[in-house]
Simulated scan of single mutants.
Amino acid sequence: MELSEQLGIEIISMLSAYIDVPINLMDPSGKIVASTDQGRVSQLHGGAKKVIETKQEQIILESDIGDFSNVRPGVNLPIFHRGDLAGVVGLTGCPEDVMQAAGMTRGSVEIALEQIHQQRQAFYQERQWNNWVQQLLHPIKMDEEFLIQEATYTLNVDVKQNWQVLVLCISNHFEWCERIRQLFTSQGQYPLFVVPHQENEVIVALPDQNDSITIENILKELYTVDASIGIGGTEYGTAGLRRSYFQAVDAIHLTDKKFSYSKDVQMERLLSHIDPEILDEVTKGYQNRLNQLEKVYKETLICYFVSNLRVNRTAADMHIHRNTLVYRLEQIHKKTGLNPKVFKEAIILQALLL
């Protein structure tokens, strides 16, 4: 990474408040790209050219001015970034007086170059992951071989292992991405990616931890935030990442819990993905009747299914007498034509409720 005009101007603006001597910053060609003396900008600096040739510091005394073009007494130091020459910093004045300030200036420039380099790398990698995930979740199909190659040779990761995907539906999802990444890394967990998706999703891909982590504990601060978190199953490879994502999305849509696990809604997932035409064909005679049920009967039916068709448990959960529950179930049978105590008919009722 080389010293640019824009970066040079920013550094001069920052350092000039602390260093009360003239400062010049030169690019790898020796041209002054930024200076406290605007009249010197864009000029070639002879001392800088000597530094570029030798990659060594160049001290210019009053007696040396005739040996170089466009120079004044002072110190010129090479600026390196990751082993390569990135430019030259020059401070005007008595060399003994400005040497320390010149060294501090060089250090500041090299630190700034590294920070910008890391920021650009992080931004570039984030864009690569965003593009990769977009292709992974293509609504029609994905090119698995291409995704594996991109992951291996561009993103430098091995996706041929088990993954678990989390989907967080949350406002300001772009801002939350970095915070969510920090929450996991603070617990020693390093996601494959944490990316924003669509209008309000954050997608997190975690390596298989064999249930050694408690996701709800790591993300406990989200309990106070308007967010829903779906957790997919553990699946293998790129195809597994895709499956786990859609499992997590289903888990969010099929429950009203803060944290929803796809493993807890397998039956609901199955019923929700029945062909709509077949579902309508089977249930059209019952749907209107169910819709006309009083609220208390629908609530009873929902609780009855949550309790796995156990009468005593349902009655206890609803704080009603067992006979009251039996009566309500009989009324549901009478009003809808489907008996919730008969397994096959209960399945149809469950599908209608979903």
Rank of each mutant, 00 (worst) to 15 (best):
I274T: 14
N288G: 03
L338G: 08
L352Y: 03
L354M: 12
Q287K: 12
D275I: 10
K335A: 11
R310L: 15
K341H: 01
F305Q: 05
L290H: 02
E345G: 11
Q292H: 12
R269H: 01
V342F: 15
L293I: 00
V282H: 05
A346T: 02
L349S: 06
E281L: 08
I332R: 05
T283V: 04
M318E: 01
E281I: 02
R269N: 03
D280V: 04
K295C: 05
Q292W: 12
L271Q: 08
L349H: 07
L293T: 01
E299N: 14
P340R: 07
Q287D: 11
Y297K: 10
I302C: 06
L279S: 08
H319L: 02
A351Y: 07
E277K: 15
A351E: 01
V326G: 00
I320E: 02
N308Q: 11
E294Y: 03
D280C: 11
G337F: 04
N312M: 08
V296G: 12
R328A: 08
N339S: 09
N291G: 15
Q287T: 02
E330Y: 12
H321D: 07
G285R: 03
H319R: 01
I332L: 08
N308M: 04
K341Y: 09
L279C: 09
L279F: 11
V342L: 15
D317R: 08
H319I: 05
D275Q: 12
P340C: 06
D280H: 14
E345F: 05
Q331M: 12
Q331K: 15
E330T: 14
L349W: 10
T300D: 12
V282G: 04
I278M: 08
R313I: 07
P276Q: 05
F343H: 08
K335L: 14
S307E: 07
E281H: 11
I274R: 05
E345A: 10
V296W: 12
A316D: 04
L293Y: 02
Q350A: 03
R322A: 05
K284S: 13
V342Q: 15
T283H: 00
L354G: 06
K298S: 03
H333Q: 15
I278F: 12
V282E: 04
C303P: 09
Q292S: 14
L293V: 12
H321F: 10
Q287P: 10
E277S: 15
A316L: 11
Y286V: 06
L309F: 06
Y286I: 13
A346Y: 06
Y304Q: 01
N323P: 01
H321T: 13
